[in-house]
């Protein structure tokens, strides 16, 4: 729902410089999206939480003298105290330092996987949808194939290969196996956008396919891509911690929230600090990411269920 121009005397930018009014237009839409987003109290809280979590994960370690792999021989399994804010583990590691290290890992992995996998999904989905024919059939067959086995299982099988290697391999694998559903959605959108009149108009004036994809198709599904990227961030964090829980993910001596929870579960009743902080922060992280995703959906995609669905007016 956008206002149409009723006042012909506004804006008098010189036609030679499209930059100025361009900003005006963007900010108009931007303001609307922002206003819709801000209406979601839960999403706003989620966004604040994410910022706070990032700050905690990356600035927190500056305030504690303990490193995440360092052991305090004077404190084994000590409860939270002034020395060790989150207590210590069986071998005297500082749980606060470890939890922050794990949080860093989860946040970074989530973000990277979200970006990479959405990029793959966008490329594969638009190519399949726009070109159709055998390109479509081949790509969709690959999607079907990868959807037949849950990503978790494939990465678990591959886990011996990156044992002792950098966790970045894990990022690549997570991204490589979490783009399929988004790609399907992107393909569906491309199929309908391809028949839209503005795309036809571009095609009939001779604009080449790749340029149509970049200029018309991708920008028009940007909102869906952003929303899906957010969802993927949450899923990636969950998958990573799940893998780490079984020892298939981040490898010691490095830690992740998943390995911390796995170590803590067995003694969770007697030494709850081993488990509660990492578990709590993990849930808080994913919850924040998901609620931001939900808020973005309503703000960016007004046709979604909760936006302003009903047309008021005539």
């Amino acid at each position: 729902m956008s206002a149409s121009i009723t006042d012909p005397h506004s804006t008098a930018a010189s036609p030679g410089s499209p930059a100025q009014p361009l900003i005006e237009g963007r900010s108009g839409r931007g303001r609307l999206v922002l206003r819709r987003f801000l209406r979601h109290r839960l999403s706003v809280i989620g966004l604040v939480c994410i910022v706070a979590l990032y700050a905690l994960a990356f600035l927190g370690p500056l305030f504690t003298p303990w490193g995440y792999a360092e052991q305090d021989p004077t404190a084994y399994l000590s409860p939270p105290s002034a020395q060790h804010w989150f207590g210590t583990s069986q071998i005297g590691e500082d749980v606060f330092a470890q939890t922050l290290r794990g949080l860093q890992k989860s946040l970074t992995i989530g973000l990277l996987v979200g970006i990479i996998s959405t990029t793959i999904a966008a490329v594969v989905g638009t190519a399949a949808g726009y070109f159709g024919g055998w390109v479509d059939r081949a790509l969709m067959w690959v999607v079907d194939l990868l959807l037949v086995i849950p990503a978790f299982l494939i990465i678990a099988i591959l886990s011996p290969a990156f044992r002792g290697k950098t966790w970045l391999i894990l990022v690549v694998l997570l991204a490589a196996f979490s783009w399929m559903i988004t790609a399907r959605i992107v393909r569906g959108l491309t199929l309908s956008l391809r028949e839209r009149e503005f795309v036809l108009a571009a095609r009939f004036t001779g604009v080449p396919p790749w340029r149509i994809i970049v200029r018309h198709i991708l920008p028009n599904m940007a909102s869906i891509l952003i929303i899906d990227a957010t969802i993927t961030v949450g899923t990636a964090i969950l998958t990573e911690t799940g893998l780490s829980f079984f020892g298939f993910g981040v490898q010691p001596p490095d830690v992740s929230l998943g390995t911390l929870i796995a170590n803590g579960t067995n003694s969770a009743l007697t030494f709850p600090w081993l488990f509660l902080f990492s578990g709590g922060l993990l849930v808080l992280t994913v919850l924040s990411v998901n609620s931001v995703g939900d808020g973005l959906r309503d703000a960016l995609d007004p046709t979604s269920a909760r936006g302003s669905r009903r047309r008021s007016g005539d």
Binding site: P15, P18, P21, L22, G25, R196, E197, F198, V199, A201, A202, T205, G206, V207, P208, R211, R215, H216, P219, N220, A222
Partner: peptide, 21 residues
Amino acid sequence: IASLDPRLPVFDVLAEPLRAH
């Protein structure tokens, strides 16, 4: 509504055929 790309300012809409050629 459908025949103009909602994400392009009018300048770019009109420039597109010219650029393509």
